[in-house]
């Protein structure tokens, strides 16, 4: 186990960088329709910001902001959003994941609503990818014993 090493420069730079990285990640997810980007990429960037927190500070500092319970819930929540959108399409009378039918409950025409449905599932994918990256990183680096906060 590596001993914790506090460095003022790294911590200050990371404190400034992390909000910018997260903002950029949300931009990549939300702007995926018009530029390169989407759920997978944005989720990876968002996960990287949490991993940067662990590297620059320590695990407990990160877990105070993003607890492990929330992390595990988010892993399932992303898949759930994706699957529920598909089930919603069935309930409205179309095929599974055919977003065109969503215009019955969202007041736009049936073409625009496809872009909206795409955005919803991209958000679901992004949530899952972010939580999975953080969870795999934490469990692999600490052999699953990250209560003490040592890296």
């Amino acid at each position: 186990m590596i001993r914790l090493y506090d460095d003022l420069i790294i911590q200050t730079v990371c404190r400034i960088m992390i909000p910018l990285i997260q903002l950029f990640a949300f931009y990549v997810i939300a702007h995926g329709h018009y530029s390169p980007g989407g759920g997978f990429q944005g989720g990876c960037i968002l996960g990287a910001s949490f991993i940067l927190m662990v590297i620059a500070y320590d695990i407990n500092w990160m877990k105070r902001r993003f607890s492990e319970k929330k992390n595990i819930l988010l892993i399932a929540l992303g898949v759930l959003i994706y699957a529920l959108v598909g089930v919603l399409c069935i309930l409205l009378g179309a095929e599974y994941l055919n977003y065109g039918i969503l215009h019955k409950i969202i007041p736009t025409d049936s073409v625009k609503v496809r872009a909206l449905g795409t955005l919803i599932i991209e958000i679901g994918v992004g949530i899952t990818v972010m939580a999975v990256m953080v969870s795999i990183f934490l469990n692999l680096t600490t052999l699953g014993k990250h209560e003490k906060g040592e890296v």
């Binding site: 989407g38 997978f40 990818v129 999975v132 990256m133 795999i136 469990n139 692999l140």
Partner: peptide, 17 residues
Amino acid sequence: MLTAIVVMVSTFGVALA
């Protein structure tokens, strides 16, 4: 390949575990 990259990462994680 976008999906294949993500599968690559997750198989790598599981294999390391």
